[in-house]
Structures are given as C-alpha cells and as structure tokens.
C-alpha cells in the first residue's frame, strides 16, 4: 500500500512522481480503516486545490454585486433613473406645452411681471406666462442631452489623446501632454466662455461643444496616467513576452484596465457639465431660443426677477443640484467599488 505497483525505474523523476502521488492518495493512516468514512474522504482536494465550478465572475460583475448593496449608489442611481425617465416622458405628462404662454393675460410688466401659483399651475408661470412646472419637466430632456453629449464628447476626445500618449509614450506622449497642460492651465469656465463666444450664433450645440472641449484635457491626463501605469505592469510585460501584437496589447490589456478612473470621472463630469451648461446659459451664451426650456437657461432668465420672485431661480437650481448630486453619488460609489484595494 505504500509503494507504487509499477515497475521501479529508480532515480527518474517520473517514477518518483508516481510513487509520491500514490503515497499522497493512500491517505490511510496506520491504525485506521482509511476510505471507509463515506463522502468525507472522497472529497480530498487535488494537488492544485479546488477550483469552484461554474462561470467566472468578472471584475465588472463583482463590482456590480458590491454596488447593488451600497445604499449611496442606490440613492444616486434612483435620482439618475428618475431624471432620465422624466426626460423621456416629460412631453407626455407635462400639464401644459412649455412654449405656450397660457397665463400671458396675467402678466403685467409693471404690477405683476410673474404670475404666482394658482390652481392648474402649482409653481406659477414665468415672465412670459409659461407654466413653470411644465417647463421644468420638459427642461430635463435638454439638460440631459447637454450633460450626456458634452461628457461623451469630452470622453471621446480625452480617450483618443490619452490612448495615443499612453500607448506610444516617448515624443508622442510629450507633445500630447504639453498641449493638454496648456489647455488645463486655462480656467475651465473661462475657456468654455471663450469657445462658446467664438461662434456667431450661440445654440445648444455650441454649449455642448464648448463644455466637451473643456473636459478633453481632464480625461486625457487621467487616462494617460493610468495607461502608463498599465504599460509598466507585469501583465502587459507578459503579453509582450508572449509575442502579442501592439494593437491588442493596447486595446485588450491596457485600455480596459485603465478605464476605471475614467468612467468614474465621466459620471462626475456629467454633473459638472450640467452646471457648466447652466452657467453658460446664465451668462447668455446658451441657446437663445427659449421655446425648448433647459434648466440653466431658466435659471439665467430668472435673473431680472431674482429680487421679487426668487422662486423662478430656486426651482431650476434645485433640480440641477439634485441631479448633480445623483451623478456624483453614483460616481463616488463607482470609484469605491472599482478600486482594487477595497475589493473583497
């Protein structure tokens, strides 16, 4: 029972392996009737240890599992979902057309510039007699559009630059990063104003473009940093040693592993993009056509009436704050769950 039944070939490792494996599997200790204990003994692990059966759980998946139990994330996500749903269905459920001047007959420039709350118009109307509640609801759509498109634009531009710099390194990296540094040295809002002001006629697209360009260097620098970290990681070295081509190394190994911080940043930028859009609109660089309302624009238009009728400004401001908070909470909890140090 101790020795392998095989014909001995003394000295060769394979023989020793067989002998030792036999030794290891004949677990019966002296004095006990080994193997008769039922299921227990049969489940002794293999040399390498047990590998759980079933599909593997990817990092994204395990991050999601953690997020599902995180109330901060759930709270933020609830706000975001509510916001998106509102943006989609607002035209259907809004009590009035946001462009129709339903209460224009109550507007009197001297005595009553802004009609107050009344039955059918719980938040009142604005200086043109348009229903504020309806405008807020429909405004969600424009606001979302501006936030998402500006962020996506910034993300795409930043990813292109960051990937270039991080993947090639050397002089490409130097050139790209100096340009990025110059862009970063200009205060972001100032730059957004300048870009938006360059266009002859401001529109919602100029706002989106301006904010997107402002975000490009932020994303580029972030991605470049984490791409460089990946570039020096062992698993990229392993792929190089394996003879994997440059393209797959960059797009299969470096980029996906470098994306975590960028995705987190994107959710945070979504919030600031909405605020920046509001600022641009507030300063008159937004969409001049106020028939399709946008929160920032509403805030800007409320400016002349701020002394007498602050509620005109407070409602859109509250909306912006709540939505920005939603995206920020989502971003922060994403950051935590994607951080490898907080794993397990």
């Amino acid at each position: 029972m101790t020795d392998s039944p095989r014909r001995p070939m003394p000295g060769t490792p394979s023989h020793k392996k067989a002998r030792l494996d036999a030794l290891a599997s004949t677990a019966a200790p002296s004095g006990s009737s080994g193997g008769s204990a039922g299921g227990g003994v049969a489940t002794a692990v293999s040399d390498a240890g047990r590998v759980a059966s079933g599909e593997g759980v990817s990092l994204w998946m395990s991050a999601w599992r953690r997020l599902r139990r995180d109330w901060v994330f759930l709270f933020g996500a609830a706000i975001v979902v509510l916001f998106i749903v509102l943006a989609v269905v607002a035209p259907l459920i809004a009590p009035h057309d946001p462009a129709t001047r339903v209460l224009i007959d109550q507007v009197n420039r001297q005595t009553n510039p802004v009609p107050g709350p009344q039955p059918g118009h719980p938040l009142g109307a604005d200086y043109q007699g348009r229903d504020v509640l309806s405008r807020l609801m429909v405004g969600a759509r424009q606001t979302l559009l501006v936030g998402v498109l500006a962020t996506l634009g910034g993300l795409l531009g930043g990813m292109t630059l960051g990937t270039l710099a991080g993947a090639f390194g050397g002089w490409v990296d130097s050139v790209v990063m100096r340009v990025v540094d110059v862009l970063l040295s200009i205060p972001s809002l100032l730059m957004a104003f300048s870009i938006a002001a360059m266009f002859r006629s401001p529109s919602q697209w100029t706002v989106i473009l301006a904010i997107a360009i402002v975000q490009v260097p932020v994303f580029a620098r972030l991605l470049r940093g984490s791409m460089l970290a990946q570039r020096h990681s062992d698993h990229v070295l392993a792929a190089r040693a394996l003879g994997v081509r440059k393209g797959p190394i960059v797009f299969r190994h470096m980029l996906p592993n470098a994306m975590g911080p960028v995705i987190v940043q994107a959710t945070l930028v979504l919030a600031t993009a909405i605020i920046d859009a509001a600022a641009l609109s507030f300063l008159g660089l937004g969409n001049p056509d106020d028939r399709s309302p946008e929160w920032g624009q509403m805030l800007g238009n409320a400016q002349p009436y701020f002394d007498s009728h602050p509620h005109l400004a407070v409602y859109p401001a509250l909306c912006i704050i709540v939505v920005a908070l939603g995206f920020t909470l989502v971003g922060e909890s994403l950051r935590e769950s994607l951080d490898p140090k907080s794993r397990r």
Binding site: G56, S58, D234, H235, A238, A239
Partner: peptide, 11 residues
C-alpha cells in the same frame, strides 16, 4: 507575481 502578471479582466 502571479496576480500582477495576469490581466485581471481576461478569463
């Protein structure tokens, strides 16, 4: 480092 040398996002 067996963990560092395997891309964490690949099966």
């Amino acid at each position: 480092d067996p963990l560092g040398s395997l891309d964490p996002r690949q099966t």
